[in-house]
Write a protein that binds this DNA or RNA. Structure first.
Length: 478
RNA sequence: GGCGCCGUGGCGGAGUGGUGACGCAGCGGUCUGCAAAACCGCGUACACGGGUUCGAUUCCCGUCGGUGCCUCCA
């Protein structure tokens, strides 16, 4: 098996992947915060990590993957102010915080299904791991990494010398230009809450008892606790959005490594954000579209998946309707190739014949090359180039010279790695349609053009297009 | 204010110190009874200025522009 390479955030270099246990990968993906309907930008990361998982599986790894659901309500800002997002959602919709979490967890999972994302081995809710989170704080307290102030228990970043290393932070510079007023009881503006007190006793739900007082866990704690609980002290790969680097993952590392004295993860992969119409997605700009908005414009979730997959995960890409339409067309062209498998046969029987078939050999070679491209830091654009070039060759090959099994296997590989459901979305045509095609063929042979055209029209009504070649007619879906 | 990332043809999007990946769109033509989402062909692209070099889109410096994080937002 060939090596796998990842661009590792802490070293900012491409490194050879070496799993902790041979043939196995422990992977953690920072999941969604469930207080509103996920927009297309949110889903980008999960599409990218889905390709990561598919590549690892195709490379022969047994992947154990955990993704969290952040369902604990947190305050809207680091300063002890702002309204809790879950609480706000609950008030807005007149339901409980638990119902808010459930509603948007369901919406996320529904979107994930539409996008054909592989379900992680474990999907863990922060609220299901409160005792583990409390236990982790106890460990940190025992080692002297915590202190309590008026509104909560904090992690003392001054006690963790490597705090700035991961994100290459300039702590002094950040302090000087900070946009936020920090709680000045904190020893350092970078210190973060491990446990927040419900000071005024106003929280009636999502509040728990702890040795330090009634309240709820800090914002970064859940990931550390769930990784420890489900995957162990050190994992192979940790993924997240680029925004997680300076705060969330920096704090996660501080907590976990202070508690365990071991590296939290060997490889950190971060995906760039999606821009929409040239700028950051924001509700106020009206550009944070939902999958439903795409559907309203006639685009499927798979069209969006295609759009995302054709760029590299560390490149910032720009969503526009025009770009989405281009991706949708590309997917349509791929589906037309996939439809060809119903119109071809295996004419070569012996292995010798098969291996001497140039196109079959090219398809076999492409299957390997596509995987190789993904093994090189998820170079999906390169993989797509290989696919496009091969598809172009297939298109100009007479149907009779395309081996059905070779084509089907190629499509299977592409589906396995990219989840575009080329096979599922291109079923065979009905017997009725097949008869119409044969009838039209006969009409053409009899030079009965009026009848032939009428049949073509009839087929178009059934969303079937026809392409006549010197070697016969090819159908495709309209 | 600090720390980043990025600027490639109409739109996306790779890549490279020295013959313009790939996709979408467009144009011209071909095949065809007609058609086609079929085939063939078509683009003087690498923000600007300077430097290094025989030679830079590719390396270095600067400028301008865009964008991100520092507010759990992927």
């Amino acid at each position: 098996m060939s090596d796998i390479y990842f661009h590792n955030t802490p070293t900012n270099k491409k490194e050879t992947f070496r799993p902790i246990h041979k043939g196995k990968v422990a992977l953690y993906t920072c999941g969604p915060t469930v207080y509103s309907t996920p927009h297309i930008g949110n889903f980008v990361a999960y599409i990218r990590w889905d390709i990561l998982v598919r590549m690892l599986i195709a490379s022969g790894f047994e992947v154990t993957r955990v993704m969290n659901i952040t369902d604990v309500g947190h305050l809207a800002s680091d300063a002890d102010e702002g309204e809790d997002k879950m609480l706000k959602g609950a008030k807005r919709e007149g339901i409980s915080m638990w119902d808010v979490a459930q509603r948007y967890t369901d919406e996320f999972m529904n979107g994930a299904k539409q996008l054909n994302l592989i379900t992680p081995t474990f999907i863990t809710k922060a609220t299901d791991f409160i005792p583990e989170q409390i236990e982790l704080i106890k460990q940190l307290e025992k080692k002297g990494f915590t202190y309590s102030i008026d509104d909560g228990v904090y992690f003392d970043t001054g006690k963790f010398p490597h705090y700035a290393d991961f994100a290459h932070l300039d702590l002094e510079g950040m302090k000087a230009g900070a946009r936020v007023d920090y709680n000045n009881e904190k020893r350092s503006p970078h210190d973060f809450a491990l446990w927040k007190f419900d000071k005024k006793g106003e929280r009636t739900e999502m509040v728990w008892d702890s040795p330090w007082g009634r309240g709820f866990p800090g914002w970064h704690l859940e990931c550390s606790a769930m990784i420890e609980a489900k995957l162990g002290d050190t994992i192979d790969i940790h993924t997240g959005g680029i925004d997680h680097i300076p705060v969330h993952h920096t704090n996660e590392i501080a907590q976990s490594e202070a508690a365990h004295n071991k590296p939290l993860a060997h490889y950190w992969l971060h995906t760039a954000h999606l821009l929409s119409e040239g700028t950051k997605l924001a509700k106020s700009l009206g550009n944070s579209f939902l999958l439903q908005d795409l559907a309203d414009q006639g685009f499927s979730a798979l069209d969006f998946r295609m759009f995302v997959s054709q760029s590299h995960y560390r490149t910032e890409s720009n969503f526009t309707w025009e770009n989405l339409a281009a991706a949708a067309n590309r997917l349509r062209n791929w589906q037309n190739i996939a439809s060809l498998r119903w119109q071809t046969y295996d004419t070569l029987q012996s292995d010798a014949e098969k291996s001497s078939d140039e196109l079959s050999a090219a398809m076999q070679q492409a299957r390997e090359a596509i995987l190789l491209a993904l093994q090189d830091d998820l170079e999906s654009p390169q993989a797509f180039r290989i696919i496009d070039e091969l598809f172009a060759t297939i298109e100009r090959t007479p149907l009779a010279d395309i081996q059905q099994t070779s084509l089907r296997q190629l499509l299977e590989t592409i589906d396995e790695l990219f989840g575009l459901q080329l096979l599922e979305t291109t079923p065979d045509v009905s017997e009725e349609v097949k008869l119409l095609i044969i009838e039209r063929q006969r009409a053409r042979e009899a030079k009965d053009w009026a009848r032939s055209d009428k049949l073509r029209e009839q087929l178009a009504h059934q969303h079937i297009g026809i392409h006549d070649t010197a070697h016969g007619s090819i159908w495709y879906r309209l």
